[in-house]
Design a protein around this nucleic acid. Structure first.
Length: 579
RNA sequence: GCCUCUAUAGUUCAACGGAUAGAACAUCGGCCUUCUAAGCCGAAUAUGUAGGUUCGAUUCCUACUGGAGGCACCA
């Protein structure tokens, strides 16, 4: 990656400056590519930070730095056309046209692999995401975890990590007591078979309604839970039925969304390890009894206590999480675990990670809570399931696809029905995913139908459309692969160069998205790339260009299409050939 | 009370301590006898308040104000 090379180059030269001025430490500097190209293509603040440390004029320091860089044996003068220092002390690097043109050949050579790397080689990373609850419908809230998680998974895999996804399904716990009680009293197997989650939700709701009038129900439910945890045959059978039916419905949604998991180990999977976990905590004296329950005291971390066993003997989700970690440490030996879970649970993960430290399990592993903001209603408040404010995923998808179908019908009526349907799905679902992924993970997002289903501007359909446009040109030109030799030096006008530069940045963008666990960096990049292409498209003819130039441009736009497709792929979004 | 997020244009969102704070939607005005107008070009409008650190702050720190969420027997 050019950015890394530049960092090394500047770093080495900066050390020489450090010596020259006898500085104790080498201040941190940054190297970044420019958003617009008026100040060059890459810039560093090295002169400014060095100048500050040395109490010298940055412009003067910068001049020295540039001299040193140019003298370095790793410096290739053919890569940079110009290095200059400007105003407060930015050093700007302008890439040579020749280098950019040559880089295109490299991109074409790498094709679908362009942007990938082996920087994660030898490292294992578990991504824990989606985690819906049995018997409850998936809604827009789950969507964030699912989509962000899947995207991070794709990104890390692309960077050469051994990547493992695990869907930690909520298939165990107290809600089952209520559900089993409700099922035994009011349940209808056939109805559940037909419409599993809807029927289960009805049972759940009914339970709560009845329980308000009859306080005894809560007690009954607790007993059912206990029976289930004691592996009572009848309750196990009902439980299994409810789980299986729910999973079928989840799988339907995952299939439509193109989400895949390497493991689907629900909470129930860890049930038989829980007692052992609590015992270990007691043995290590990090847990103790309190009010008949068992807790881990986290005063040392300034955190509230962590409950791992209830007074009625049942275990909690904290216990299950500990068990899951123990299991993963043993079976998978990951270097890192990412929990893609909403910000609501920030405290839980703080407690969980602190407990790991006390247990001395966390020595060789990095735990990360990849938190994200909530999906709020138009009123700026949390969507309430009870009030029916949550938008079920299925209806959201349906609505998006329907809208996309209408759009394809208008824009491209000649396509066959099957093709239209395929495109409608890709576009509708892409729009939904992009809406989540293009936003910063941490901010709450306000659910907005208009925005969610917006097919213009900064949206997946815009990117997909750009890709389809390119593909359309390539079809008309009967362009076949990039194997053909062509004269890349013909690509030299500003619009062509802006695309070449943008393409060059792709690998470093992916690296950054991974570092920050933020797919929106890729989304933002793709939007810029598409913008640059569309500008080019508007002004520069490809098919009508003179023969050699035409071939060069075809290769250029083919590379752009490849990067759009690769990038969208990392976001879990498909790029149709036409639309 | 404590903790985690958060405050940017009419609205919904970007911006890895850097250069003139970007978009999209909505509004107004242009561009289809040339490769897909789901597009392109142009106009107008924004960093909650008060301090601090810094050559430089939307970004870091402090306080205040506002918003969302969480704080042992739910997950």
């Amino acid at each position: 990656m050019l950015k890394n090379k530049l960092e090394n180059l500047i770093g080495k030269s900066a050390k020489k400056i450090q010596k020259k001025y006898k500085l104790k430490k080498l201040p941190k500097f940054t190297v970044e590519h420019s958003r617009d190209f008026q100040f060059g293509d890459y810039a560093t603040n090295a002169a400014m930070v060095l100048g500050k440390e040395a109490k010298k004029n940055p412009m003067e320091v910068g001049d020295f730095l540039i001299q040193k860089i140019k003298k370095d044996k790793n410096f290739h003068s053919e890569i940079f056309e110009k290095i200059e220092i400007i105003k407060p002390g930015f050093i700007n690097f302008t890439l040579s046209t020749k280098f950019l043109q040559k880089n295109l050949l490299e991109i074409l050579k790498q094709g679908e692999k362009f942007g990938s790397s082996n920087s994660g080689k030898g490292k294992t990373i578990i991504v824990d995401y989606s985690a819906p609850n049995i018997a409850k419908p998936m809604h827009v809230g789950h969507l964030r975890s699912t989509i962000i998680g899947q995207s991070l998974y794709n990104i890390y895999k692309f960077l050469g990590y051994k990547t493992i996804s695990d869907n930690h399904i909520g298939d165990w716990g107290t809600q089952f007591g209520k559900l089993i009680y409700a099922y035994k009293n009011w349940g209808d197997k056939k109805k559940i078979n037909q419409n599993p989650i809807e029927e289960m939700t009805k049972l759940y709701v009914k339970f709560h309604k009845e329980a308000e009038e009859n306080k005894e129900l809560e007690e009954f439910a607790r007993k059912e839970t206990k029976k289930l945890q004691d592996k009572n045959k009848e309750n196990m059978k009902i439980w299994k039925f409810l789980v299986e039916e729910s999973l079928k419905e989840f799988d339907k949604i995952y299939k439509i969304l193109g989400i895949k998991f390497d493991y689907v180990l629900g909470e129930s999977f860890y049930d038989n390890m829980l007692e052992q976990i609590v015992n270990e905590c007691l043995k290590k004296k990090i847990a103790r009894k309190s009010e008949d329950a068992i807790i881990i005291n986290l005063d040392k971390y300034n955190l509230p206590l962590f409950l791992i066993k209830k007074k009625d003997g049942a275990y909690l989700y904290a216990t299950t999480d500990l068990a899951a970690i123990k299991y993963r440490l043993k079976k998978i030996k990951p270097d890192k675990i990412l929990y893609v879970v909403s910000n609501e649970q920030a405290l839980h993960f703080q407690q969980l990670f602190a407990s790991l430290e006390l247990l001395d399990w966390s020595k060789n592993i990095e735990m990360k809570h990849i938190k994200f903001g909530m999906v709020l209603g138009k009123n700026g408040k949390k969507l309430s399931t009870r009030k029916g404010e949550t938008v079920p995923l299925e209806s959201l998808i349906e609505k998006a696809v329907k809208l996309a179908r209408k759009a394809v019908e208008e824009k491209n009526p000649k396509l066959s029905k099957a093709e239209k349907e395929k495109i409608a799905k890709i576009v509708g679902i892409g729009a939904i995913k992009y809406n989540d992924l293009s936003q910063n993970r941490l901010t709450d997002i306000v659910f907005d139908w208009n925005k969610m289903l917006n097919f213009q501007g900064d949206s997946a359909p815009y990117l997909q459309y750009t890709h389809a446009r390119i593909k359309s040109i390539l079809r008309k030109a009967k362009y076949k692969s990039s194997a053909k030799s062509f004269n890349q030096t013909l690509l030299k006008n500003e619009l062509e160069l802006s695309i070449l530069k943008q393409l060059l940045f792709f690998p470093e963008i992916i690296e950054r998205a991974a570092q920050e666990y933020n797919p929106n960096i890729i989304a933002d990049y793709l939007y810029q790339l598409a913008g640059r292409f569309n500008l080019f498209y508007q002004k520069i003819p490809v098919l009508k260009a003179e023969k050699e130039l035409r071939l060069a441009r075809l290769n250029l736009i083919f590379a752009a299409a490849t990067v759009l497709k690769n990038g969208l792929g990392l976001l879990g979004i498909k790029a149709p050939e036409e639309m």
